[in-house]
Structure formats: C-alpha cells, structure tokens
Amino acid sequence: MNEFYYFIRNILLPSLFEGTLVSIKLIILSIPLGLILGVLIAVGRVYGNKIISTLCTVYVIFFRGTPLLVQLFILYFGLPSIGIFFSPFASAVIGFVLCSGAYHSEYIRGAIQSIKTGQMMAAEALGMTRFKAILYVILPQALRRAIPGCSNEIIYLIKYSSLAFMVTCVELTGAGKIIASRYFAYTEVFLVIGIIYLLMVSVVTKLLNMLEKKLEIPGLG
C-alpha cells in the first residue's frame, strides 16, 4: 500500500503535471475560439445570403457528421501530403475549434430562431442596420438562451481534449499512457487521470453556473 502512495506522489503526479498543463493550454485556447466561430457560423446561417448560408450549412454537416478523431487525422496526417504542416498542438487546437464551433453554432442558431421576430422589427423601425440590430438586440438575448447548450459543449471539449494524444500531442492522457506502459500500472494511472478530469469538469461546471447566474435577466430565457 505504501508503495502505491509513494508511486502516486513522487512519480505519477509530477510526471502528469506537464501533461495537465498542456491540456489546460489546449482547452483555454479552444473554448473561446470555438464559441466565436460558433456565433459567426450561426449568424451566417440565419442572416447570410444564399451563398454564405449554404457554406455554413455544409460546414456544420461535415463537422457534426464526422468523428473528431477523423478531423484531427485529416489535419495532422492528411494535410502534409498537400503541403500544409501543422504541429501536433496546432492541429489539435484547430480541430477542436472547428468541431466545437459547429456544435456551438447549432445551439446558438436555435436560440436566435427562438427570439420573437418583433425584436428585429422594432430595432429596424428605430433605424438600426441589420448588423447593429443583430449585435445589440438579437445576440445579447440569443447568447443568454444558448448558455445551457454551449456549456454542455464546453464540458464535452474538456473531455475530448484527450484525443490530442492521438495526433502525438502529449497532454494529460498521453502522459498517462507513457507512464503506465513504463511501470505497467494502467489501472492506477488511469484512475488518477480520471479523477483529474472529473475535477476539471466539476470546476468548470461550477464556473459556468456562476456565469449563467450573473447574466440572468428577469423575464429572459
């Protein structure tokens, strides 16, 4: 038993530390970028002209219809054959942003479409351009309504960040596999890793709930 604790404290946790940092970096970059992309795609689908709207729809169909892992493989193993080279970290971030952007856009699009048409009419009646109306009247309301769905997607991203290892970016899961195979301690290592992910997810869930509370407006949502 002591051996077990010794292993965890002096060998496992320090080695996982670097991996955890990489995971955090991946997540911190991908979440905001994915959200922004989601907003742009959703607005493009609802308010764009035929061409923009169709392009956005095709994008969503592709990135929601294929596994994230396939997308990562195309980015890291596929693109070099046509001359585009991304590092493992960059491929992972790009893949996460493109993929979560598609999912976010569906939640946001649903929220935009749930806003009464009268809101846009009133904004235009005041003389606002379409763009201003979307920015100052539609999005502030739609984004609040999309928070539950987008929060869900953010939590998914934290878990699926583990796939970065499959394109050789050594984050938490990757670090774990390396240690586990060296010491043949798969069960111990991955239980600890599991706990770390559970902690990350709990903390972020708490933060997102606080955010939702803060943005609450009586009568909205």
């Binding site: 009464k116 009268g118 809101q119 009133a122 009646a125 003389g127 009247v137 502030p140 309301q141 407006i217």
Partner: peptide
C-alpha cells in the same frame, strides 16, 4: 435614415427584453 424620422409603435410593444 428615413426610419429614424418615422416612429413606430407596435401592437406587441416589442420592447428589447434584455
């Protein structure tokens, strides 16, 4: 520019809820 010079009041009010 023209819409700024015409004020409209709707049956459903259409106040900005946020």
């Amino acid at each position: 520019r023209f819409r700024q010079k015409m004020g409209m009041v709707f049956q459903d009010f259409n106040l900005f809820d946020h």
